[in-house]
């Protein structure tokens, strides 16, 4: 499969990279490991007139730092380096599991990066296909057209979904992205970074680069869990996934967040479904109740555009949320 012609820059450091991007604007795209960008470029759905390689920035933008109750992960940290960081994997087993489920082990070590996973584009079985495959179908919303093929006649927007395992877990952890531009650094909550629009899923300016992600561990014991449904033990994007982060104080939930993957253009945070858990002991009944509500909330978002039966995915929201919550509770209590 051929890539379309493109120009290539490999700036020596961050400031050079940002200057280049500022100059080229939307004409240029960042290239980290390439596992998301290059297949899309081959499919003709990535506007990649110029790619700016980040390979020389790895020393600057890699590494996991744990300091003052905060974990910070450089954007170019490989998935394996992040997941196997002793402190991270001990304190955030849910994130470790999410990162370990991405692609395949050999990719996690070389080309899969945390930043790349966070910035991966949304996906849809009617979009991530060759130009020849799409020929004969009207261009969809994501490609500047006015239809959504899996969404049906009533669809008024792109229904492609976020299938980034790392993003879903980090969203549950209420992480913040660090973003750099020639004007300096800014911090943006993942809640803000993801627009929820399939057409333009990331709220980054043309001159910005995501340089890292960080999160507050909190004072209370934290349990994290990631539950992913896929038909194979590797290589697969989630058909559906749930991430849970749950803090306990004296056996009572002090804070909880749950996010879903492969449902919506952003990791879908379920606020109302889990809110009643706060201030309560996380009994199996209460967790099940939250999971049931989650299923109801998520259902309208789902369309048939990833490789599994739609009704099954709808039915499974309850199950993956329940499992992620149960495991998060166990872990918050000190279990594995």
């Amino acid at each position: 499969m051929q890539l379309p012609p493109m120009d290539y820059l490999a700036p020596a450091d961050l400031s050079e990279a940002l200057a280049a991007k500022a100059r080229l604007g939307d004409e240029a795209v960042w290239l980290a490991g390439g596992t998301d960008l290059l297949p899309r470029a081959k499919q003709g759905i990535a506007a990649a007139r110029t790619v700016i390689s980040l390979k020389h920035l790895a020393p600057e933008l890699s590494g996991v730092r744990v300091q003052d109750g905060r974990i910070t992960i450089g954007a170019l940290t490989t998935l394996k380096a992040a997941g196997e960081h002793p402190e991270l994997s001990r304190r955030l087993p849910g994130l470790r599991d999410a990162l370990a489920s991405i692609g395949a082990e050999t990719l996690q070590q070389s080309v899969g990066t945390v930043g790349g996973n966070l910035c991966a584009d949304t996906r849809c079985l009617y979009l991530n296909q060759s130009p020849a495959w799409r020929a004969g179908l009207a261009p969809c919303f994501k490609l500047g057209g006015e239809v959504c093929h899996p969404g049906g006649a009533s669809a008024d927007r792109c229904r492609s979904v976020c299938q980034s395992d790392g993003a879903v877990m980090l969203m549950a952890l209420q992480a913040e992205a660090q973003v750099a531009s020639p004007q300096g650094q800014r911090t943006v909550a993942l809640d803000e970074l993801y627009t929820g629009k399939g057409e333009t899923p990331l709220a980054l300016q043309a001159d910005e680069l995501l340089t890292g992600v960080s999160l507050e561990l909190g004072d209370d014991p934290l349990g994290t869990a990631y539950h992913k449904l896929a038909l194979r033990g590797a290589l697969d994007y989630p058909l559906l996934s749930a991430a849970a982060a749950l803090w306990l104080r004296d056996g009572v939930v002090s804070r909880v967040r749950v996010a879903l993957g492969a449902v919506y253009a952003a990791p879908l945070v379920l606020i109302d479904a889990v809110a009643p858990l706060v201030g309560q002991e996380p009994t199996p009944e209460r967790l099940a109740q939250a999971a049931r509500k989650a299923g109801g909330h998520a259902e309208p978002f789902l369309v048939d555009n990833v490789g599994a039966d739609l009704q099954w995915r709808k039915d499974m929201v309850r199950v993956v949320v329940a499992r992620a919550l149960e495991q998060a509770v166990q872990r918050a209590k000190g279990g594995a």
């Binding site: 079985l125 009617y126 495959w133 038909l231 194979r232 033990g233 590797a234 697969d236 994007y237 490789g307």
Partner: peptide
């Protein structure tokens, strides 16, 4: 149209499966 003509979407089993 065949929605899964590729190795990514057609689920040939892997060593771990």
């Amino acid at each position: 149209r065949c929605l899964n003509p590729t190795f990514l979407e057609y689920k040939v089993p892997l060593a771990c499966d």
